[in-house]
Simulated assay, not measured.
Amino acid sequence: MKFKTIFSKLLIVLMAITVVLPISGNRVYADAYKVVTLGGDLTDSQKQEMLKYFGVTRQDANVIDVNIDEEKKYLGDVASSDKIGTKSISCAYVEPTSSGGLNVSTNNIYWVSSSMIKNALITAGIKNANVKASAPFNVSGTAALTGILKGFENSANGGKIDENKKKAANDELVTTGELGDKIGKDKAAGVMNDIKTQVVKDKPKTEAGVRKIVENVTNNYNLNLSTGDIDKITNVMNKINGLNLNFGDIKSQLGSVADQLKGTLSSEQTQGFFAKIINAVKNFFSNLF
């Protein structure tokens, strides 16, 4: 009788263990949904600073390094050496989600904007994710996309991204940044988004067809761009056109970027309008005395 009692207790313990273990396993799996990529050339203290900024620890997220060779692989043909640099500094937080679209923010990134990154992620085929790009000090952010894409691929809910999409996305990011140097980051992102929308929708059969779309959109913005600028934009749009992206799949994403940028541009225009009024009033009174 005593033996049966002991055996029953052991059986209960074993059953409890089999129930608890899968739960523990699920927690580990869920943690892998969050990925942080750290610049391989950061010091240990800088890496810890970045983890703190992203609000994670090495125990509750998949933390991986990105090295300069990985960055050069995708940026070497499209970005100047001063934009790439010689060290891997940029960091990223990636959390793929099942809905909610792309939520992108940046910190200590001066050359690349959140809208530029969002546009590039759409090209790469990412639909839903919370993304943060940052660095321990001010950097251009050109290489941030490399870390973001690597983070997405190494997350439990991510997946392998086509190499052509990666290259096109990085090319788009750099080209938009260069255009932004001339017309402003938000306007550049808006122009590139409008061109991409038209290209993906119409799917031109020739490079001349792509170039016509580029010229039409830039003319609508009244941009006085050089032939070289048009060539660069046409080149990246040819790459995007070759990806055969489904317009129906990304229509809402492209529209959300356009809506976001329209609000920003409208705000800038309003500020410019009131600035003109204030200057006119100042000039009026200064002429009276």
Rank of each mutant, 00 (worst) to 15 (best):
L245Q: 03
T227A: 09
I230A: 02
D186Y: 13
I213Q: 02
K187V: 08
T227S: 13
K251I: 00
E268C: 03
K185T: 12
T218P: 05
L254Y: 07
S267V: 13
G242S: 10
K185A: 14
S226V: 10
T176N: 05
V199K: 05
N244L: 10
N244R: 07
V199S: 07
M237A: 01
T264R: 13
N238W: 10
L223V: 14
V199N: 09
N279M: 13
A189S: 15
Y221T: 13
G184Y: 08
S256G: 06
L173V: 03
D249I: 13
M237D: 01
I278P: 02
E172C: 00
G255Y: 06
E172D: 05
Q271R: 14
D194R: 11
N220D: 14
K232H: 07
Q269I: 15
N241Q: 07
A169P: 07
A258S: 12
Q198C: 01
V200D: 00
Q260N: 15
G272P: 15
D229I: 11
V214E: 04
A208W: 00
A258T: 14
M192Q: 03
L245P: 01
L243I: 04
K262P: 03
A169K: 02
K185L: 05
T176R: 12
N244C: 05
L254R: 04
Q271V: 14
S266R: 15
V236K: 06
T176H: 06
S252E: 14
D231V: 08
Y221G: 12
N235C: 01
T218G: 01
N193P: 01
T176M: 07
V214C: 02
G177W: 07
D202V: 11
I277W: 09
L245E: 00
S267K: 15
G180R: 10
I233F: 04
I233H: 11
E207T: 13
K276D: 12
N219M: 06
L254M: 12
L173R: 09
V236G: 04
E207S: 12
I230H: 02
K251P: 00
V200C: 02
N224W: 08
I240K: 01
V191D: 08
